[in-house]
Nucleic acid binder design. Structure first.
Lengths: 139, 139
DNA sequence: TATTAATAAGGAATCATTATCAGTATAATA
DNA sequence: TATTATACTGATAATGATTCCTTATTAATA
């Protein structure tokens, strides 16, 4: 059915993308990663960044976050954890609360889907944007 | 700061969009809603559908789902509930498990964000796609 | 080292969504 | 009811994110 997956070469581009993504605690979008990587590889193409993020996500090397907002975000930490997204600026951070492994079982009994996993996304206002909002009130 | 919100007129287009969205239990995308509405209003524009879905979401009449996948989805049921998305066909269904209101408080203590809410999205394979996968194995 | 398969870069193409604008419909009120 | 102000529509253009395509490179290995 599926063609055999080609072996992944560890090219310079791929390595740098992975390194830069691992450096940050945020969850950058493809074009943010492109900007980060371009400082070290000025001739890299945006398409290369997209292709490799996709390939590495398929191989479980990184996580592609299917969160709200218009752009997909990527994460070098692959173990399950939850996220919080700023409703104002769109930034995504990790949330340090334990993962509810029981949720998947609970969902299995409530649904005819074959459950694969779950993700919790909180919405809020980040500290920076809280400040900006306060300033706006003062004007 | 913000201009006063204009009053919302209940135009035919708006009414039909709301009616069609209320008819279905799924969570259609804007273009799916466009197709549904066009059977009754053949001359409606796609932009009108987008504009009105956005306005009605701002007014709390419907829910704009910030779920994974490339397209936004809309929901006529505005009370908080969780969703499950098919990893294969992208369909989104409701999940009948109770909402964890305590989660928001828990997140508040774990984060410096001002928490507004949360959403849980399960991933799985819908019954239809399970069938298709079984058929593929037999070949 | 020669072969070949995966990969890169660059640009075109696509898809979803938003913005613009000119004309129309509706509500407010004179 | 006529006038005026404003919301709204439909068509189309513009934008933004992502994917696709083509040709040239590059890494693995025979």
């Amino acid at each position: 059915m599926n063609a055999p997956a080609p072996m992944l070469r560890l090219t310079t581009q791929r390595q740098v993308i992975l390194e830069e993504l691992s450096k940050v605690k945020t969850h950058p979008t493809a074009s943010e990663i492109y900007d980060m990587v371009r400082k070290r590889l000025p001739r890299i193409g945006l398409g290369t960044v997209y292709r490799n993020l996709e390939l590495m996500a398929e191989n479980g090397m990184i996580l592609k976050l299917e969160v709200g907002g218009t752009q997909k975000r990527f994460d070098a930490t692959t173990d399950n954890h939850y996220h919080i997204r700023c409703a104002r600026c769109g930034k995504v951070d990790d949330l340090e609360i334990p993962v509810f492994n029981t949720l998947t079982e609970e969902a299995s009994t409530a649904s005819s889907y074959q459950i694969l996993g779950h993700h919790i996304e909180f919405t809020g206002i980040c500290p920076e944007c809280q400040k900006i909002q306060e300033d706006e009130y003062e004007e």
